[in-house]
Design a protein around this nucleic acid. Structure first.
Length: 184
DNA sequence: TGCCTGATGTTCT
DNA sequence: GAACATCAGGCAC
């Protein structure tokens, strides 16, 4: 259950979330995807929005684990985070990529026919039609639900530096779900 | 195929 | 007023 996220730091939760499913319920149908790429952000991390303390924007990131933190960036994109840790800890996991398991046609429509569907944090939110109305949403409930899942058999977690940021770029806090055996 | 740039708006200093 | 956890399209090679 996602209450577990309140007992975990973002760094612990980020690899754990790989293989979990995100279910988006829309009037037209359901989109279900498996989380395949995450990044951990915590309050003592200069690349994190919570580094400088709580603001109006980051309020939901300081809420209890298991909630959503949706923020707007670069003037045109939303990004979706899963808040981790107990209330006030200010840490979370950025969801960077999903593998769409169900409702790919609907996701494709949300993306105006463009592929890839949900590879990249902004494409992910576009495919699932996530915007700031879901900021602070409890991910245990509709219309956006996080369901505990497991890694596909034979898959492994690859740990790499984060991308798309300008601070603490070398910290190995990015976790990618890779199919097949580990190759260096 | 790969680099470069424009689009775009919220947030914080 | 500048920075920003980005993406897509255009152009050169």
């Amino acid at each position: 259950m996602i209450e577990r996220l309140r007992a975990l730091s973002a760094i612990e939760a980020a690899p754990l979330l790989l293989g979990w499913e995100l279910v988006r319920t829309l009037p037209e149908g359901i989109i279900r995807g498996r989380i395949t790429e995450t990044e951990a952000y915590h309050q003592s991390d200069p690349a994190s929005h919570t580094y400088k303390g709580e603001t109006a924007r980051t309020k939901s990131m300081f809420g209890p684990g298991g909630h959503a933190y949706v923020y707007f960036t670069y003037g045109m994109h939303f990004c979706l985070n899963v808040v981790a840790g107990p209330a006030g800890s200010g840490e979370g996991v950025l969801l960077r990529s999903l593998e769409i398991l169900e409702g790919a046609d609907l996701a494709l429509r949300n993306r105006n026919g463009r592929t890839p569907l949900a590879l990249g944090p902004a494409r992910l939110t576009q495919a699932l039609r996530v915007d700031r109305s879901l900021d602070g949403h409890d991910l245990a409930s509709l219309p956006l639900q996080l369901r505990e899942g497991s890694m596909p058999s034979g898959a492994h977690v690859q740990v790499t530096p984060r991308i798309g940021i300008s601070q603490a770029v070398e910290a190995p806090l990015r976790f990618v779900l890779r199919e097949g055996p580990l190759v260096q």
